[in-house]
């Protein structure tokens, strides 16, 4: 059984404290995102650092309260749900397998933590932890070890085991392979794809690596400065990227094919700053197709065929 996630006009504004006597800076990390993640799918969210994709992941996980808007799972609001119930529904896998495991607790305790939080303990925990470790390709003897005794790939398997031990229906993966070597990355991606199939999970997969997203996701949303600028099925998005930012992002994927050279993405040297969002279209300072209207007029999402694009030129 999977679950549909409905994200309704969600925003998250962080106040950045900037001294006792100056007004706090408002960082609009996520600024009005609406998405529907279909049940049983793998939904990719891509974008560069500072685009708000990790904040969105944390909002879905309930780690931050949203500043406005709501997130519903099967029609029920996540914000109103008790934390323990939400834990049974949604679990995370984070990027850095070195900081996502408590260095002072054993693998058994780490994987068993969600069970302990639900009040399950003793033999039942040990049984389920061992079964889960084997399910993610680790020997159950590993349970007695500390995270420091494991390699990066093994640690990420432990993090996956912890996420799945309660049998959640949704797993939010925030850059789960970015910190890993190429050969290990492939192992983890294969494992995630397999677990998703076997356990009927809904995956929210956040990454900056478009080749990886293309490989495992059915649907992709591209984020830029807190907004979703394009949202389409993976096929449609990769076949015909429409937003100028999506095009630049796709052009900068460097596949191992010699002779193609390095593409000219034509984005200039300015850099997006979520504390200082430009007026008009957020992308206009970097856009190679910018017109005068883009500098002043705020863009709204428009449906173009089977996709949603936030660009007036599309």
């Amino acid at each position: 059984m999977s679950a549909t996630i409905e994200i309704r006009d969600v925003a998250k504004i962080f106040r950045q404290f900037s001294g006792m006597f100056s007004a706090p800076r408002m960082v609009r990390a996520v600024d009005g995102v609406s998405l529907t993640v279909p049940a049983g799918g793998c939904f990719g969210i891509v974008g560069e650092s500072g685009c708000g994709k990790s904040t969105l992941a944390r909002l879905i996980l309930g780690l931050h309260p949203a500043s406005s808007g709501d997130i519903l799972v099967d029609g029920r609001s996540l914000m109103a749900m008790p934390r323990r119930e939400r834990a049974r529904l949604i679990q995370p896998v984070f990027q850095d397998p070195f900081s996502s495991l408590n260095p002072r607790r054993t693998i058994h305790d780490i994987v068993g933590l969600p069970l302990a939080a639900q009040g399950i303990s003793g033999k039942e925990t040990t049984k389920r932890v061992h079964a889960m470790l084997e399910r993610v390709g680790l020997r159950s003897e590993m349970a007695g070890r500390l995270p420091a005794q494991l390699s990066g790939g093994q640690r990420q398997r432990v993090a996956i085991a912890r996420a799945l031990v309660l049998g959640p229906r949704i797993v939010v993966c925030d850059e789960p392979t970015s910190a890993l070597d190429v050969s290990v990355q492939a192992q983890i991606l294969n494992l995630l794809a397999e677990l998703r199939r076997d356990m009927g999970l809904t995956l929210v997969f956040i990454s900056h690596n478009l080749a990886v997203v293309e490989h495992i996701c059915d649907e992709v949303a591209v984020m830029y400065l807190g907004r979703v600028v394009e949202h389409a099925s993976t096929d449609a998005l990769f076949r015909a990227p429409t937003h100028p930012y999506t095009r630049a992002l796709l052009a900068s994927v460097l596949t191992p094919e010699p002779g193609l050279g390095i593409p000219d993405v034509g984005l200039g040297d300015s850099y997006p700053d979520p504390a200082n969002v430009p007026p008009g279209c957020r992308f206009h300072p970097r856009c190679p197709m910018v017109t005068d209207v883009c500098r002043t007029e705020i863009q709204v999402p428009r449906r173009v065929g089977e996709r949603v694009v936030e660009c007036m030129l599309a």
């Binding site: 492939a186 794809a193 080749a211 490989h215 990769f238 596949t255 191992p256």
Partner: peptide, 17 residues
């Protein structure tokens, strides 16, 4: 191990070491 858009089928098992 490297997924290549358009070359390797979506969801296909990646090679791994």
């Amino acid at each position: 191990c490297v997924p290549i858009p358009g070359k390797i089928a979506r969801g296909a098992q990646l090679g791994s070491i």
